[in-house]
Write a protein that binds this DNA or RNA. Sequence first.
DNA 1: ACCGTATACTGAAATCTGCAGTAAAGATAC
DNA 2: GTATCTTTACTGCAGATTTCAGTATACGGT
Lengths: 212, 212
Amino acid sequence: MGMAKNMTPSSYAVLALLDLRPWTAYDLTQQAQRSLRYAWPRSERLLYSEPKKLVELGYATTYKDTSGGRSRNVYEITEEGRDALKAWGSARTQAPQIEIEALLRLLFADHGSLDDVHRALDELEEDIGEHHQAVVELMGSYLDGGHPFPQRTHLSVLFATFQIEMFKAIEGWIEFARREIHEWPTTEDLGMNERTETLTRLLARDKSPMDP
Amino acid sequence: MGMAKNMTPSSYAVLALLDLRPWTAYDLTQQAQRSLRYAWPRSERLLYSEPKKLVELGYATTYKDTSGGRSRNVYEITEEGRDALKAWGSARTQAPQIEIEALLRLLFADHGSLDDVHRALDELEEDIGEHHQAVVELMGSYLDGGHPFPQRTHLSVLFATFQIEMFKAIEGWIEFARREIHEWPTTEDLGMNERTETLTRLLARDKSPMDP
DNA sequence: ACCGTATACTGAAATCTGCAGTAAAGATAC
DNA sequence: GTATCTTTACTGCAGATTTCAGTATACGGT
């Protein structure tokens, strides 16, 4: 028999969506693509597995909807599920995890060419740019077509502000990094020169070299 | 027999460290704690497994060092390893992954109390604050004791600038979020009121509500 | 009738984390 | 000097998650 399954933050994320309305697993993958992805990116596969686990735990029920074209499994939250959600609110949050391969490349840029670093920065800019645009477009769609859950606008807006601030900070840094790298003759061996010492001093005093 | 293992970005991160000098797996866990963690957080467990995989692939060799107290396995990069590292520089980077449970809580704050949201923000502030302080202290240690790899200062400094910008952006947003939430009577049902509409309009035009 | 795309879902291998456990060396306290 | 705590050094295993390759039906247009 299946071992006792545990509730992960991903499980609570899905449960929180089910608390808004019933969804099919497919719907969940679409919704996750729209908003969840920016705070809690999870694979499509997981979004098919999680609701099943919630049913096993008694936090959701499922039924087959045959009304539309093909049949599909719809998931609905239970009272126990709503109780579990409330309890989640008081647990300690996990520390943020930020994973950026382009930064890893920069950190080890001395194994490669200047071109390699510039390409890594371009790719980071591209990836961030896509997300940036998607968030702006989402906000535009809320003005045009209205918010799918209008009573939650205050939350979406705070969340989107976080994204926009983050994207702008990263895009600003990319510009700064390009200007710095432009002064490098190669990727290697700059040592503690005048410029790097200035920057280290600023950073050690918690001043951003980008500020002034 | 073991299946053919694949090189992941984590494998390349370890390989890049081995290109600086030979390390034991334990050393790698310490180093990862100091710098890697901010771009590519990985578990201690993985940092014991990766060098073994690199040996299997012929990208590293290992020998037992019995000089100090207890014996330990030291890993060294090979020529093939250096070649593999060079090739890594030209592959497309993965898109950034940002995972912040506190934001997830905010996004679903309407299931809980105002206290719950404030606690999530406090916890985010605490976690970011710890990282922020660690980076500033690391830069301070580079001024005092010198950089462990002085020829790489230019890279550390750009990398640290990214962290500091990111931390300041998040800390600024936390303050903004607190001020906004302060105006909420409850976590629920604010709908599209004057304030949320103003914010949505700004965001849809790619303006941060925090700017002016 | 054919083709491309969206909907709807599953199994299995590979990756990675978390945790418990093992053990020896060094440091500190009494 | 010896009890105890911390650091160094490492492994096995269960559980969480991703990636990938499938399977299959419905719908829209040509």
